[in-house]
């Protein structure tokens, strides 16, 4: 526990939770991971991530711009590894964060997650576990704090840089190999007998907005919650 008792648990922690870094949580080194504020081995971290993704409600992957846009060599491979991961999580959804533009007057929470108000997407879709991958760290940090403040979502970050103290489970320096390692760990847990929460719902689920788009229907934003 890095010499203190502060644990980065799913919220809601309330408005303006302290930054985990200010509470003594330190980032892990390469080959390690961070689970609820504690340093763990990479393997242990992957097992925690895999278990949470298979057992919590409405698992969702939030790919950020660094994965969604094929902006340089290697991105397509990392994107492919994310799709492989998704195919191993029954009932998973993929809701993108294509960029960080503020979206006003409102977002469609079934189509997008926006770093200015990520809680709206999580609340609307009742997401209790999510993976962030390919989001620039400075936006990931603010997003993670907002999620921890206002939702009960278990946040997992596969970070290309040093990782994130404010997510519940974080793996630093994660490239396509680490994503595939998580996929393999999920397969391993299934082989060990863990029955996924959505075992009867194989494959990736589309949100209503994505479904409408895929069928070429006129797309209607989700109604405003009363």
């Amino acid at each position: 526990m890095n010499g203190n008792e502060y644990r980065v648990k799913p919220g809601p922690e309330g408005l303006l939770p302290p930054a985990a870094a200010c509470c003594g949580v330190v980032l892990s080194e390469k080959g390690q991971g961070l689970v609820e504020g504690a340093l763990k081995s990479e393997n242990d971290t992957l097992r925690v991530m895999a278990r949470e993704l298979l057992t919590r409600q409405n698992p969702t992957i939030f790919p950020g711009p660094l994965v969604l846009w094929a902006w340089r060599e290697g991105v397509a491979d990392k994107a492919a590894s994310v799709l492989e991961l998704a195919h191993e999580i029954p009932g998973v959804r993929i809701i993108p964060m294509p960029d960080y533009r503020p979206i006003y007057p409102k977002i469609d929470p079934e189509a997008v997650i926006n770093p200015c108000h990520p809680n709206l997407t999580i609340w609307h879709n009742k997401i209790e576990v999510c993976v962030f991958i390919g989001v620039h760290c400075h936006f990931a940090n603010i997003t993670l704090k907002m999620i921890r403040a206002g939702t009960n979502c278990y946040t997992i970050t596969l970070c290309h840089e040093a990782g994130h103290e404010d997510s519940m489970a974080s793996l630093p320096f994660a490239d396509a190999n680490q994503v595939r390692a998580l996929t393999e760990t999920i397969r391993q847990l299934k082989r060990e007998g863990l029955r996924p929460r959505y075992a009867d719902t194989p494959g990736i689920l589309l949100t209503a907005a994505q479904e409408a788009l895929s069928q070429g229907l006129v797309w209607q934003p989700a109604p405003v919650a009363q």
Binding site: P63, A70, V75, A76, L83, A111, L213
Partner: peptide, 12 residues
Amino acid sequence: QVSPGFMRFMPK
């Protein structure tokens, strides 16, 4: 350019 396989998840 959207990464291969992700276009169908992108908002309209």
